[in-house]
């Protein structure tokens, strides 16, 4: 049975070339991102200093789907690395005029882009783009359909590591809509690569994928049982559309069954942290008392998001440069050998 295909996001040295999904990546890929992100944060002030790393590189943020938070954090991260940044809101421009996705892409490539940061409503769109870009162009997935949102998941594990020291051996519970969430799919992969002890998912079957076992998760229908003894609680936003498509009766009923309240949080370990990729629906998936409470690390996550995205982009460009230098050196060695003969 074939479980994975050749990983197009790795270069011939097995290092990151694109960042499309966490599936197929190894422990060391993830720890490297986390460590580099850590190095960007000033340990005294907690601030992120501007660096010269990507001076002269052009990064295009291609957003085929509206987004403010993700786009903004990417843009800040790119600028902190001194890259030239272009934001393209493609939803309203060319593809609507019948220009194909690839035409758009190749046009932008001709404008000397070095990296595309892509958000698209179709699962697999970032893979598709990565397969068709020129060899020197890199692709970072900023969210594709219901498939993956790897930088968001990395910032979540970064936050967990900040508070818990390590992901290893932790029990994590995710409450809410797994089926329609690219964030949760990526979180689950990040947590399992980093060897979390148990990943639980709490929610009704209508919000779960048809084969949760394929994700290596344990499903709990009952929220109290699911929260019992966990170290981390991750809350996921519930979209209004879920009610329209008859997956849930009402927000109120969801809150009654699965909403994260202070009483329910008491089932988790006393030092458990509460996370939410945002934006929060207060009174739908989480009670304000919990969202603003002591155990909540929700706002911290936004700051870390910048550091993690800087880490991903600088690692990708560094890998490319290393590979190029190695090849140049090999060529020089070959020339030396020929002239000496």
């Amino acid at each position: 049975m074939r479980l994975s295909t050749p990983n197009i996001q790795l270069n011939e040295k097995g290092k990151l070339r694109h960042f499309l999904t966490l599936e197929g990546l190894k422990h060391h890929h993830l720890t490297e991102i986390l460590d580099v992100a850590e190095s960007f944060i000033d340990p005294l002030t907690g601030e992120i200093n501007k660096l010269d790393t990507l001076h002269g590189k052009a990064i295009m943020n291609l957003f085929f789907e509206p987004s403010t938070r993700t786009l903004t954090t990417f843009e800040i991260a790119e600028k902190r690395l001194s890259a030239d940044v272009v934001n393209l809101n493609i939803e309203t421009s060319s593809t609507k005029k019948g220009e194909t996705l690839l035409d758009t892409l190749w046009n932008l490539e001709a404008m000397l882009a070095d990296m595309f940061v892509v958000r698209h409503s179709e699962s697999g769109a970032a893979h598709f783009i990565a397969k068709h870009v020129a060899p020197h162009v890199h692709v970072v997935n900023a969210g594709d359909g219901q498939h993956a949102h790897p930088t968001q998941a990395m910032l979540d594990v970064f936050t967990i590591r900040k508070h818990k020291g390590d992901i290893f051996d932790l029990k994590v519970a995710i409450i809410g809509d797994v089926q329609h969430s690219r964030v949760v799919r990526s979180q689950i992969q990040a947590l399992s690569i980093l060897e979390a002890r148990e990943i639980r998912v709490i929610g009704p079957k209508t919000l779960l994928p048809s084969h949760p076992e394929a994700l290596g998760i344990h499903v709990y229908d009952n929220v109290e049982e699911g929260l019992e003894g966990v170290d981390v609680v991750i809350n996921v936003r519930l979209q209004n559309e879920r009610m329209k498509s008859a997956l849930l009766p009402s927000e109120k009923e969801f809150f009654n069954l699965y909403g994260l309240t202070k009483e329910r949080l008491a089932y988790a370990k006393p030092d458990a942290i509460v996370m939410h990729p945002g934006p929060i629906n207060r009174g739908v998936e989480i009670d304000s008392e919990v969202a603003d409470g002591e155990q909540s690390v929700i706002l911290e996550q936004v700051t870390y998001g910048i550091a993690v995205r800087m880490a991903v982009m600088s690692i990708i460009f560094r890998n490319a440069q290393e590979l190029q230098e190695e090849k140049r050196q090999a060529l020089l060695d070959l020339n030396m050998m020929e002239t000496s003969e």
Binding site: G145, H147, A148, R185, P209, S210, H211, E213, L215
Partner: peptide, 9 residues
């Protein structure tokens, strides 16, 4: 199935 669950298709 297994694959759609993982890929979010």
């Amino acid at each position: 199935g297994v694959v759609s669950s993982r890929l979010g298709l």
